[in-house]
Nucleic acid binder design. Structure first.
Ligand code: MN
Ligand code: MN
Ligand code: ZN
Ligand code: ZN
Lengths: 145, 145
DNA sequence: TTATTGATGCAATAATGATGCATTAACATT
DNA sequence: AATGTTAATGCATCATTATTGCATCAATAA
């Protein structure tokens, strides 16, 4: 964990009124360096000896609430998390980009450049959030064949 | 269960090479008469004394594979199922309409008229399926306040 | 009517996630 | 630096959704 990155994570925690604990810093560091969204099971596999399962769930939930990370359900219904790119804040997410779930490697990609198009839905339905998950075979897996 | 409806369900099963069992007919009947998508837990609550949990899961999986029903994950990651409207067949679904998950009543609506817009995503990603779940407050729940 | 094979029920297990409560550690205050 | 306060953690336990193995049963074909 580089020095100025650590500082950056600490600032992020403080800014959100969260104590800067080792577990939180570690989770932030891992999520920040991954190229795709990350599930609790994956994280547990990495830090399970150092951080308790429940703590991990709670950290992820807290981070999501604070707008530090956003949640994507993959095709198995498992939650995956990725760092929010820009302007998210407490209970105010702006991550309406498309996600891609590879059927082969199971990775969940944030397609940050692909926004979810506006929809015309029946009057009476009040939209709070939209989640578009595309599944198929990812770039890497296609290349590998 | 009306007589000609039963006949219709039996035909559907036979057409898909499935034996017409009481459990399957019952599941078809229930799903056909519901206005929103339905989860296994809901079904179990209704027919749990007559049909085993595991049988229910297997029926749903089989129906999905045959293109009789389609699966939608709600915001909790729980699978919900709805009858396929038209031209779905084995391993060949065409249910690319938007779904609406109410945060209040938790219902999952099939917005059959709202199609998922085409997307331009990076070359290399091969799309097999798309799922767009919109969450918010549904028509009924908005009315009720 | 019998044989075949698919379908079911039961028991057990897996995976993801939440809750209650005692203990610990981070931060503010003195 | 010591102390107090409150958030954060760890552990045990439980909940929910879903799957697997295997013996039994029943729907359809022969
Ligand atoms: Mn994302
Ligand atoms: Mn639908
Ligand atoms: Zn892949
Ligand atoms: Zn509602």
């Amino acid at each position: 964990m580089e020095q100025n990155e650590t500082q950056q994570y600490e600032d992020l925690l403080v800014k959100n009124g969260l104590k800067r604990t080792g577990a939180r810093l570690q989770v932030l560091d891992i999520l920040s360096h991954r190229e795709s969204a990350t599930s609790q099971p994956y994280l547990e596999n990495v830090v399970g000896k150092e951080i308790d399962r429940v703590t991990l769930y709670r950290i992820l939930k807290t981070f999501e609430e604070k707008g530090i990370i956003h949640r994507v359900l993959d095709n198995h219904g498992t939650a995956n998390y990725a760092i929010c790119s820009n302007s998210c804040s407490e209970h105010n997410h702006h991550d309406e980009h498309v996600h891609f779930n590879c059927n082969n490697c199971l990775r969940v990609y944030c397609l940050d450049d692909v926004k979810i198009p506006a929809l015309k839905i029946e009057k009476g339905f009040q939209i709070a959030d939209m989640n578009l998950v595309v599944s198929g075979i990812c770039k890497d897996c296609n290349k590998a064949n």
